[in-house]
Amino acid sequence: MRPFFILLLACFYLAAARPREMQPWQLSGFAQGTSWHITYYAPDSVASHASIDSILDKLDSSLSIYKPYSLVSQFNRCTDSLQIDEHLANVVNASFLASQNTGGIFDITIQPVTQAWGFGPIKVTDMPDSLTISNLMHCVDVRYLSLKGSVLFKQKPCVSIDVNGIAQGYSVDVLADFFEWKHIENYMIELGGEIRLKGLKYPGAQPMRIGIEAPAESEFEPAMMQKVIRPANGAITTSGSYRKYFQSKGQKISHIIDGRTGYPAKNELISVTVFASRAIMADAYDNALMAMGLEKAMQFLKQHPDMAAYFIYRKKDGAIADTASTFFDKFIFVE
């Protein structure tokens, strides 16, 4: 009897001392006009739905052009300057860098032009003419902005900003920072198709798989996957012209507006998926790569080895094809 009792005690002791097993915790919801999904792996739950909502609400009230009370909206209404918060300051600083690196293709001051093309918060009924665009382009240049301390200045009252091209990526980074702060080492955070991931999935300690969506003609078609990848720790974002566009006079008007010209990008690219260490970076460059076209985008990536990209494009004969930069090729997963 006694040896058995000791054995039993030993079992209890071992069970208590062994680290508890990792298990998946999933959260999902709606924010910024789209949905979000988070999976993290931990022995216990560390984050509530409410805590995620509150982070996203805070970001919205800083960055959303659709919220009249947001800092972005307030800045667009002001004639001179506005005291901004850390989130908007981070986004503005990242935008300055992206504008510089892309020669102005990425430019958050493109807002008046984006609005004129019908991709802003105000509904439009007619497509803009060339005179309208050239007039509006007088208000477009990132050099009209300056950030001194926490005050954002504009050189001309007509300057207004749209950080939609970068806000989702930044939001994903803020959520990732939140989980890092909670000492979570394994997570997948997705907001509107922009992803940050780290570590492995459990049980089984397997690498995570990320699907890259195939372009569909309509949102009512089931989302098919073009490729499944196994990326390194970092961020994956996708920009595509296949979902958000207008049709005017038989032409598709892409929502990707080239900051240098004020006109929608017209080239063979259908979507670009970018890998970078942080989502704000990936998100800032995915639209710019879309606007560059395949050849220039590939050249750009050669000069920026910290990024990788996967392209879906239309060949001259109309067929759909895909290609990837060398760095990205390593993620492509073959069963």
Binding site: G193, I210, G211, R243
Partner: peptide, 9 residues
Amino acid sequence: VDGVSGATK
């Protein structure tokens, strides 16, 4: 898959 990346959903 564990996540899907695509143009804004």
